[in-house]
Nucleic acid binder design. Structure first.
Lengths: 346, 346
DNA sequence: GTGAAAGCGCTAACAA
DNA sequence: TTGTTAGCGCTTTCAC
């Protein structure tokens, strides 16, 4: 047992040839004579030779692994992105290494440093909320300046020049709102996040835009923005209360658009308590085509952001850069289109 | 920009000292004179010196990264495990690299090989369903024999000698069933998976055991086992139909125990359609304390498996082995206790 | 056709 | 106190 890996050196020794002969033979170089070569190959196979990737990395100055930094793993959207990135990267012979910032600026900086310490060739990341708030992006700029390509996705930064993959949040929100309008809704409640989260902001803009196109003026009383509380249960409780009050005060509400499925679940709960039927009395549509939407009753009509596609695209952009398919300083932004997944709630 | 990383060699050259002097200085070795040392340290700091981890790995024959192979990322339980493992590993100075088998035997074997190709020091894994079915574990045994420690979690293998972290599925299921019995339920429907998935099997055993302790004989007609269809939507549809029929045929059912929250969501849906009140008419309890349970209405009482704890424990066992805190051939199995999270459905 | 040697970035035993 | 050297496993140029 405990066979350990056999090295070129050992093979060379056993067969009384030089290391380079072994190396070349295993690469099927025509430099080496047929006989020696096949002998070496046979021996290597028999002893289950596998090249040492670390040594190769040292030699080639690339590791063939890419790092992904996300704010949370236990999160539907981000896990789909990992899934997509992992699949594409693997197909291209790359490994994927995960780091989680947990929405913390400090942890994000630490993660970048750890990854940048030459264990990866490039980084795919979505910025932590805290970083968005502090607006301190020096760590990202520094790793780019250091020659490590970075691809930003979803929560991206205008101030950083690099490749980006974004969801067309605004037009997705427009689509969502429009679909509600098409179903006859006229008083649509928006449940969104604070504006410093760009996706929340963009989705709010899309909502307003759609209303405007239908000659409806957005009503501030119908726009709820959740507080960012540390305690999620507390946050949910507050949100439900807020939705409940708003519905109480605005009985004309006939549609609800939430920027994520958790908020939609909160809305569903409130409506159920009030015995308001979904979708007959009020229709609901939300972003995030995750488990909650698929398995709630009624199931939720959603805007899917296609996380796997985002992950795959990000990985592709990164690998294209790493393999010099794309010139280094030639940045682009790819927009992944949202689509509506029609279900029972609207 | 594109500063690139400065090396010991370059520093040595700039400062007209030898490479080893630089190396020792940066390690604050007392071998080196105060003056030279501080000069070198200052220079290194100024030029933002960072050691090349690849070179260190080559030298030390360890990479300080551990691999995790899971069947799916887009899955509540597995993502919590990653979360726990990642946090613990990071704390101990280890990186985490993720591979997803997608429940496929072939992909799992491939993943193991890729990881084992010396980019990681050890592996944490949960076995793919297909592997469970084929009962072919040669890849796992081989990597262990190769001297790479493996820690199995959740879906573990009796035939493989290694460290393991498991959930006390059976007693968790017993607790769940008992809690339903305590609430007065007498005819409890079980919704489980096929038996070759050990967790499904164990949970079924726990269910039967609890009934037995309460002098109730398990009734085969009240034990649904889902088929393993490739198409999840199809599978859900079939399951709902099955649950519906069973309830139709057994109106005395007053409790449902599901081995995961998705099945519980299916049950919830069926009951809603039949206007059966939860928990007044029928109580529900299930495994997986995930998003669905937290955000459905009614919210679901669950058995939490504490994925983060499992991940952290697995990482700890692995790192203990890697750092020789635990003797290599001294395997143990850690059991993480399940706990009931009481919510509205029971 | 085969092998010696340098080098990727670093450490550490040993020499000076 | 500082430097030399060998070596981790591999590739590759150049010499034999």
């Amino acid at each position: 047992m405990n066979a350990k890996r056999i090295t070129l050196k050992q093979i060379a020794h056993e067969l009384n040839v030089s290391i380079s002969t072994v190396s070349k033979s295993l690469k099927n170089s025509s430099e080496i004579g047929e006989e020696t070569r096949s002998k070496i190959i046979a021996f290597a196979k028999q002893h289950n030779y596998r090249p040492n990737n670390i040594a190769l990395s040292l030699k080639h100055r690339k590791t063939k692994t890419i790092g992904i930094i996300i704010p949370e793993v236990v999160h539907y959207f981000f896990s789909t992105v990992i899934d997509g990135a992992e699949k594409y990267a693997n197909k291209m012979g790359y490994n994927v290494i995960i780091a989680v910032s947990n929405e913390s600026f400090e942890k994000e900086v630490l993660n970048m440093e750890t990854l940048a310490d030459s264990s990866i060739d490039g980084i795919i990341m979505s910025v932590a909320k805290e970083t968005l708030k502090t607006q301190d992006f020096h760590h990202i700029q520094e790793t780019i300046d250091f020659g490590i390509p970075v691809v930003l996705f979803d929560r991206v930064l205008n101030d950083i020049a690099c490749d980006k993959v974004v969801v067309d949040d605004k037009s997705g929100a427009e689509k969502a709102t429009q679909s509600l309008l098409d179903k006859g809704c006229r008083n649509i409640l928006l449940v969104s996040t604070q504006d410093y989260i760009n996706v929340g902001k963009l989705r709010t803009q899309g909502y307003i835009e759609a209303l405007k196109k239908n000659h409806i003026i957005a009503d501030n009383r119908l726009m709820i923005k959740t507080k960012d509380l540390m305690n999620p249960e507390q946050a949910m409780y507050e949100l439900e209360k807020k939705i409940d009050q708003t519905i109480e005060q605005n009985p004309s509400i006939d549609g609800i658009f939430c920027v994520n499925e958790i908020y939609a679940a909160a809305a569903l709960k409130v409506l159920k308590k009030r015995a308001i039927h979904v979708p007959n009395d009020i229709s609901i549509i939300c972003f995030t085509d995750g488990f909650i939407s698929k398995y709630s009753s009624p199931t939720l009509t959603t805007i899917s952001q296609h996380g796997e596609k985002i992950g795959a695209s990000a990985a592709q952009m990164l690998i294209d850069k790493l393999t010099s398919k794309t010139p280094l300083a030639n940045y682009s932004t790819k927009v992944i289109e949202c689509t509506i997944v029609q279900r029972e709630s609207s």
